[in-house]
Design a protein around this nucleic acid. Structure first.
Lengths: 167, 167
DNA sequence: CAATCCGATTGCGTATTGCAATCAGTTGCC
DNA sequence: GGCAACTGATTGCAATACGCAATCGGATTG
């Protein structure tokens, strides 16, 4: 991206990569929504990212070493985007953002269910989730039950109880 | 700021407040640099924020309930900016950002000293620091020795050993 | 062979950013 | 008193980024 940095401060350097309104949304959708294709990222979020912005962010995140792109073997023209280890290690950051937002912003309760569960699970749950992400994105061996599926099931349970349409 | 949100997702709502290149830099400088005046924030950082951007960010952060502004009793035209409880609770997020940047970005070693100490200190140190911030910014009673001074001393010690100019 | 889906790209108007200069009022100093 | 320095900003302007809609060439599906 840039060779010239504003400063070598760790927080500043992190903001140079993630300090905009879309980069972390894209990573969130890949990480928690398991969205691996361009069209999935484009259409299925509440936030409705524009296609040119998505394209630009995918490029930037690849340049920054947070995403990789490979061809989908099942479809000649599909691409699969995967998280790198660096991106997987953003999980605690995203959990903290969710936790802070839950406390200090006007969140929609059903959209905060996953954030609450991840917060309550604490570092042990995060580690299990990160291991699962490594198996999904880096081809690492599967180590345990699916945290992702567990979060989704918990969400659907609460959603069903409250008559909320599943995303 | 905006009444219309892109979505009620906790991560998205957090990004609507903090998802730009300067907001967290301002909070970082107030929090870790104890910079409470406009001119201090304007001039003493490595990143050199422009005065109009700083002015705009201070306004937005006040609107978002992360900062308060009051008159400086010692100087008729000076203002003192303080963190709110919501902003103080961003500390773990900032520590995680620093930790991630330290591992995955080309940080300047001496600028990473505080980040390393806060990371190593873990939640107990963060709690102590947050208590100190509450006494500095919210007028809460002082509870223990100054974490801020400790970080600064540790930084100056390493800096002196390596002949690095103190900020 | 037509409709649909694929990952983008283009055009265009608006909003945000970066940079430098400037402002009016206050303070410190001699 | 007088003046330089300092206070928290504001203004003007150019460059960049964003948001939105339309579109693209190629591949797949029915």
């Amino acid at each position: 991206m840039e060779d010239r940095h504003r400063s070598g401060c760790p927080i500043n350097l992190t903001l140079e990569v993630l300090g905009d309104r879309w980069s972390l949304i894209v990573i969130r959708d890949i990480m928690f929504g398991n969205r691996r294709h361009y069209r999935e990222l484009l259409g299925r979020s509440h936030e409705r990212i524009a296609s040119n912005i998505l394209s630009d962010r995918l490029k930037r995140l690849m340049d920054a070493g947070l995403l990789t792109r490979r061809d989908d073997p099942s479809h000649q023209q599909k691409a699969i985007y995967s998280l790198t280890e660096a991106a997987i290690q953003l999980l605690p950051l995203l959990v903290h953002m969710g936790a802070w937002g839950r406390r200090h912003r006007p969140v929609t309760p059903e959209l905060a269910i996953r954030a609450r569960l991840l917060e309550e699970g604490g570092p042990p749950l995060w580690e299990a989730f990160m291991d699962e992400l490594r198996s999904l994105h880096l081809g690492a061996p599967v180590k345990g039950p699916s945290v992702l599926a567990g979060l989704q099931a918990a969400y659907e349970k609460v959603a069903a109880e409250q008559g909320i349409p599943t995303l």
